[in-house]
Design a protein around this nucleic acid. Sequence first.
RNA 1: GGCCCUAUCGUCUAGCGGUUAGGACACCACCCUCUCACGGUGGGGACAGGAGUUCGAUUCUCCUUAGGGUCACCA
Length: 515
Amino acid sequence: MTHCPIRVRFAPSPTGYLHVGGLRTALYNYLFAKKHGGTFILRIEDTDRDRFVDGALESLVKSLEGMNIVPDEGVFLLDDPHTPARVASRHSETYPGVSEVGSYGPYIQSERLPIYAQYAEQLIASGHAYRCFCSRERLDLLRESEMAAHKASKYDKLCLKLSEDEVANRIAAGEPSVVRLNVPEDRGDIVFHDLVRGDVTIHAGNVDDQILVKTDGYPTYHLASVVDDHLMEVTHVIRGEEWLPSTPKHVLLYEAFGWDTPVFSHLPLLLNPDKSKLSKRQGDVAVEDYLAKGYLPEALINFVALLGWNPGQGSTKEIYTLAELALAFDFAQVNKAGAVFDARKLDWLNAQYIKALPIVELVEKASPFLREKEFFTSAQDNRKTDEYVTRVTEIARERLTTLAEIGDEQRFLFVEPVVDSALLPWKGNSADTTTEALVRAKDILADIPDIDWTRQRLGEILLAEAGEKRGDFLWPLRVALSGAKQSPPPQDIAWVIGKDATLLRIRTSIRLISE
RNA sequence: GGCCCUAUCGUCUAGCGGUUAGGACACCACCCUCUCACGGUGGGGACAGGAGUUCGAUUCUCCUUAGGGUCACCA
């Protein structure tokens, strides 16, 4: 164990928010590291200057930490209050506020340019790569003709024929060029092992002379990730299935450098309901959107973990903490087929987490959502206290799918309801019967001492008073208190709004029905 | 189109040669019940098709079909 510690990395590019697919990839990396006492690295792959999005890196790191997937090594934010104090090994030159931990840095690829240039030169010197001056126009034409001929589109190695002198002259003349991988034509089959898919075989003849360094001097993903994974001593490359077709190129690069290949694990894709690769347009895909809608990080983690993995062995367990996942995780149980992201099951899981949360924590997490609602803002001050919010939360919790919904179906706990007198009588009862029930309720409730004004006692008292015909008694009372066709039981409403408001609402309805 | 990957209820999945093919979400019914929600009980619902291997295939092999991914100076 000490001679080969496991090291894995999550390596997003800062082009936007954290995607749920990215979250799952990060999670599996994290779980695998935790399971084996390894190291989880966060590396940033920002080698495309055109796709750079301001603030994306910060958003990515923040989302990850919001999900409690905290890297052991690599990039972190200096000012994030959720980040435990860590000793920075260096600060980013390009991203203010971003710092790093670990001795394999920089962990931001744009800050490693000289390293890639050096390894690219090494590849050229050893004949594993070559300069290419072909114009984009020529490449487009080439691609079109090959596609038309129903062949794989590959570069034709034209520039490989250039003499050293000619290459030197053209570079000296300032002509732009790229560096291409020289795929050996006699290489035969490339076989690599994948923890999810077993042995994968691709014929080298189908592999293109991939561009490794662009005209602007930046490396492409293929070069940068191979060099970094090697230098950072990454043992397991765990990434999405979309990388499977380019893995042979990476294997070729490891061979060209004379390096050992890491173990690969290509995770099944997360899918839209129509089975295409999960994308925006067919629902939310940003982790931050789910958080904003009141999904709990624990529920999202739990849900996403079970998309493509399960503990097997006949387990029927559905609810897992992060620690339990780390304990149970195993690539032998990772599925090969893509998984449809079914938001309804996420809803169910989230509701389960909401129901299981200690009330104090639930209030803490839900009240920010409640406090920004219009009906809350305009409510009386005595309905804005922590104690009141706690009672509301208790009533609402078993009806919540997401935290953001809190109070939506219980506005009458904050605002006086408008009662429709036609709704007051229970199943064809007369106005008199209804009035009698309400008067009886008012008298009973008025006599209840403060100490008995609890959710449980109110329930006992009202149920006892209702006797056999509960509807006659409870329905008008419930409508008087809520104004709604559907609501929590009257004793719960009474408990939350308190005696004064309860009696007031009953009197209002009595007056209403006798008009 | 080339290459690659994949295939159990609508969805997530268990299964790793012999099972009444199990669970969860969703759906339906019933129960609980003043309504809603929660909860409980039950129900319908799947091995894509065809060959082989085998005493025996959901499970192993091949083919077909279907779906997906990828073929950028993006990752």
